[in-house]
Simulated scan of single mutants.
Amino acid sequence: MKDISLSGKYSIGILLTFVILIELMLYAFSVINIVTGIKAITSYTFFLSRIAIWSALLIIFLYNFFIERKPFLLKEEKKYSLSFYIRAVLILYFICTIGGVILNAVFMYLIQEKPSEKLFELTSIFKNNYFLIIFTCITAGAVEELLMRGYIQPRVEKIYNSPVTGILISAILFGILHSTYGTVGQVIIPFFIGLVFAIFYKLYSNIKILIICHFMIDFVSMMIMNFIDIKHLSVF
């Protein structure tokens, strides 16, 4: 690794991050089912799959520490007031939520796409399981933001010397990672959210706000699904 340029190390790190995450999305449950002997997706196996996602973050942290030997967050975190945090989280939340609802409605109207069957399958394991809901939301918020925006975006920007390329590639990869839900909407909407988050991160350099907002988007959505039949929420 000593002979590889820093850009080369960044490229390998980006590829490693994406490959690990996509492999986890595709095969984590299959491996967990084999190891545990549990055939169906249960709250226990889903919890183990979130632990696996945390392991992806650990692997990239180790790669960064031993190979790149640069700060994990290449962009220095900027400090803001509490009022800025509150305003930023709320504004981002409403932009992503309203934009996501509009995009989903458009896709359902244009291509008559049905809601994700995988989401239907997962809804039952979260029913009144508040620990799993919170842990899942924390995992998504922390791991996905640290890797997609905190790790990948600035490294792509460094490699190509282009902020726009960093924003677009991080958003595209974020969308692709959600393709395992099996619908076009579950790719386009995360791409849109990833785009909004990436632009914010470029402008304001604060990953904590994105983690909080990501958590909030997932938590509110999952709590709504916990109390209302998902079949009545297809537009969302």
Score class of each variant (00 low, 15 high):
91 I>Q: 02
57 L>W: 12
198 A>M: 06
130 Y>T: 08
64 N>W: 09
140 A>N: 09
173 L>T: 02
11 S>P: 00
131 F>I: 11
206 N>P: 00
24 L>P: 01
55 S>W: 05
151 Y>M: 03
217 I>M: 10
60 I>S: 02
74 L>R: 15
164 V>P: 01
4 I>A: 08
104 N>P: 02
227 F>R: 10
81 S>Q: 12
93 Y>N: 03
86 I>C: 05
151 Y>F: 15
164 V>S: 10
199 I>A: 03
189 I>F: 00
120 F>T: 12
65 F>T: 08
145 E>Q: 13
69 R>D: 07
173 L>W: 03
141 G>D: 09
29 F>A: 02
8 G>I: 07
132 L>G: 05
217 I>E: 03
2 K>A: 13
138 I>G: 01
70 K>L: 00
200 F>Y: 15
127 K>E: 14
191 F>L: 14
34 I>S: 13
96 C>K: 00
206 N>I: 08
5 S>D: 03
139 T>Y: 01
115 P>Q: 07
226 N>H: 11
24 L>A: 08
13 G>S: 03
96 C>W: 00
120 F>M: 15
223 M>N: 14
37 G>W: 10
17 T>F: 01
180 T>C: 07
17 T>K: 05
189 I>M: 08
13 G>K: 06
131 F>H: 11
33 N>K: 14
64 N>Y: 09
3 D>W: 01
193 I>K: 04
129 N>W: 11
207 I>Y: 04
215 F>G: 03
9 K>V: 08
109 Y>H: 15
3 D>F: 01
155 R>Y: 00
169 I>P: 03
104 N>K: 11
84 F>C: 00
232 H>C: 01
28 A>E: 01
22 I>N: 06
179 S>T: 14
23 E>F: 12
113 E>G: 07
99 G>Q: 10
1 M>P: 01
52 A>L: 09
218 D>S: 09
49 S>P: 04
29 F>M: 12
58 L>G: 09
153 Q>Y: 11
73 L>S: 01
138 I>D: 03
84 F>V: 11
3 D>S: 14
182 G>Y: 02
234 S>V: 14
93 Y>D: 03
49 S>C: 08
5 S>G: 07
118 K>G: 07
215 F>T: 04
147 L>W: 02
136 T>M: 04
35 V>Q: 10
233 L>T: 10
56 A>R: 04
32 I>E: 09
149 R>Y: 04
63 Y>S: 07
14 I>T: 06
18 F>G: 06
180 T>F: 15
25 M>I: 04
17 T>H: 07
145 E>T: 09
204 Y>P: 00
183 T>R: 08
36 T>I: 11
141 G>V: 11
113 E>C: 08
212 I>W: 05
178 H>R: 08
62 L>F: 09
33 N>W: 06
231 K>V: 09
216 M>A: 15
202 K>F: 14
197 F>W: 08
53 I>R: 04
126 F>P: 04
106 V>Y: 14
127 K>M: 02
38 I>M: 15
24 L>G: 14
6 L>V: 15
162 S>K: 12
213 C>A: 05
163 P>L: 12
206 N>Y: 08
139 T>K: 03
87 R>I: 13
95 I>G: 06
72 F>V: 03
46 F>I: 10
229 D>H: 13
190 P>V: 05
145 E>N: 10
23 E>G: 14
58 L>I: 15
79 K>M: 03
149 R>L: 01
188 I>H: 01
220 V>N: 05
193 I>W: 06
